[in-house]
Design a protein around this nucleic acid. Sequence first.
DNA 1: TAAGATTGTCTCTTACAAGAGACGCATGTA
DNA 2: TACATGCGTCTCTTGTAAGAGACAATCTTA
Lengths: 262, 262
Amino acid sequence: MQDGNALAVSADEKTTASREKGLNRVLEILDFLHTTQRAIGIGDLAKGVNAPRSTTYTLVRSLVDAGLLEMAGDGNRVYFGKKLYLYGMDYVRGNDLLRRGRQEVDHLSRETGETSELCMLQSGRYTIVHSSPGTRPFRISSATGLQIPLPWTASGRLLLAGLERAEIEAMVSEDDLVLPDGRKLRLDDFIADIAKAGVTGYCVTSGLVDAYTKCLAVPVFSAPGKVEATMCLVVPIDTSEERTGSLIGLLRDRAGRLSIGG
Amino acid sequence: MQDGNALAVSADEKTTASREKGLNRVLEILDFLHTTQRAIGIGDLAKGVNAPRSTTYTLVRSLVDAGLLEMAGDGNRVYFGKKLYLYGMDYVRGNDLLRRGRQEVDHLSRETGETSELCMLQSGRYTIVHSSPGTRPFRISSATGLQIPLPWTASGRLLLAGLERAEIEAMVSEDDLVLPDGRKLRLDDFIADIAKAGVTGYCVTSGLVDAYTKCLAVPVFSAPGKVEATMCLVVPIDTSEERTGSLIGLLRDRAGRLSIGG
DNA sequence: TAAGATTGTCTCTTACAAGAGACGCATGTA
DNA sequence: TACATGCGTCTCTTGTAAGAGACAATCTTA
C-alpha cells in the first residue's frame, strides 16, 4: 500500500514525467518489492513504481530471465529470485563483520533471552541487518532489512557519532524527528545525544519507538573511531537498572570482539 | 580469470559488437562478481565483462549509489553490497522451501557428520543453494552458489526427472557431459539415469566429480511430481552399503518433510 | 627522469530503448 | 448480452543513454 512512497524515498521525487533510465526503474522495482515484502502483480508493480506498464513488463521479463526475480506461485506475481539470494550470500561471505556479527547476535539473544539486533547505516538510513528474537511472550517484531528513522533509535545515535553537524543534518529529515507517538524531537537535542553517545560508548533510549521497550546499543568499529555497525538489545522498559547495566556490559564485550582496532 | 566466459554463459554469446543495454551490462557485472567471488577493480571489471570503460564507470556508480555494490576496503575495488544481502534475506523469508531446507541441511550434517547440501536448478544449471560442511578431516569444499554441470551430479539426475528428452538436451551441452577426469558420458546413458532416478526416488553417483566421494541425493517436491530441489550428502566413496542405505533413508525422511504433496 | 600503464572524469554523437497506446483475450458483474 | 476491468503482447517514435575517445592525474618500472 502507501502508493509511491518507496519511490519518493529512493528516487528523490522526480517530478518530471520524462523518460527514465531502465536501470533506475529496476532499482525502484527492487526497492519497492523490499518494502512490500510480498509477491506482487506486474500491473500493480507498474503502478507502485510509477512506471509505464509496457516498460515494466519488459524489465520484469529481463529480471526474471536473469533470475533476479521469480514468478511467484499463483502465476502472475513477481518477487525476489534465487540469484539475489546467491549474491546476498556472496556478500556475507566477503564481509567478516556481518558474518561474525550475525553469530554474535544469535548467541546474544539465546544467552539473554532478549531480542538482539545488528544494525548498520544503509544509504543514510538506519537498517536492521540481522535480528534474533528473544524468548519473551510478546516478541518485538522487527524484520531484517527494516529501515527506521535514525532519531528513533539508540543505534542511530551511535552510528552518527563522529560525523559533522552538517552531515547529520543532511541525513535527518524533519519527518524523521517526529516520533511514532507524535512527539517531536529537537534537532539540537538529537545532536547532543549523538555527541554524548560517542563519548560514553553506548546508548540507551526508552520508549522512543514504542512505549513498552527500551533499546540498549553499543558501537562496532571497523577502524579506530569509525562506527561501522551497532549491536543492540530490545528489552522491556521496566528492566531494572542493574540488569540494564549488566546487559550493556555484555554487549560491550561482544561488540569489542567484532571491532577492529576499536 | 577465464575472461568473458561468464558473459558467454549468461548473455548468449553476443558476437555483434554493437551497443548493449545498460541493464544487461549490469546483469553481466553481477554474474561476473559472482564467479570471481572477490572485490575487483573497475578497470578489470570492464575487461571482464567486455564493456567499455566509460560505461562501466557510470553503471558501477549507479549501483554503488543504490547500495547493490560497495567499494571494497582498499578504495578502488567493488563487490556486492549490503542491499543485495537484504534482498537475499527477503527471498529467504518469502520462500518456505529454502528456509526450511536450510535448517534441514544444517541439522542433517550435524546429525551425520557428513557434508550436506540443498540444490536447485538455477537458470538451467545445477546450483548448490546451501551447504553445511561435515566433520570429516578432509572437507569437501563446495561453496554456496557454485554451479556445476548437471551430468556430474546425483542431484542433477533427480532435478531433471519428469522432463521431456528435448528439454533435457537443451539444458545439457556437450561440455557438460565431459567429467572432470576427462571421461565422456553418453547422453543416452545420462537420460536413462534420469528416468531411473525418477522411479526409484533417489540417486547415488560414485566418483563423478572426484574419485574419493560419492553423492547421495533425494528429491524435494513442490507439487506432486514436480522436483523443486534436492537434498544430498557427500560421503567417502568407500562408505559401506548399509551405511549408505541408512543415510538414504534419513535423507528421504527429511526431504519428505520439506515436500508438498510429494 | 622519462616513457608506459592505469585511473577517474568529461564531452559529444547516434543507435536504440523507454514509453504511448492500440489490440485481443480473459474475467467479472449488472 | 453488453460493459467494464485487468492482463500480456506488439508496433512505432523520439528522447537519451551507451559508447568512443580525449584529458589530467597518479602509479609503475626501467
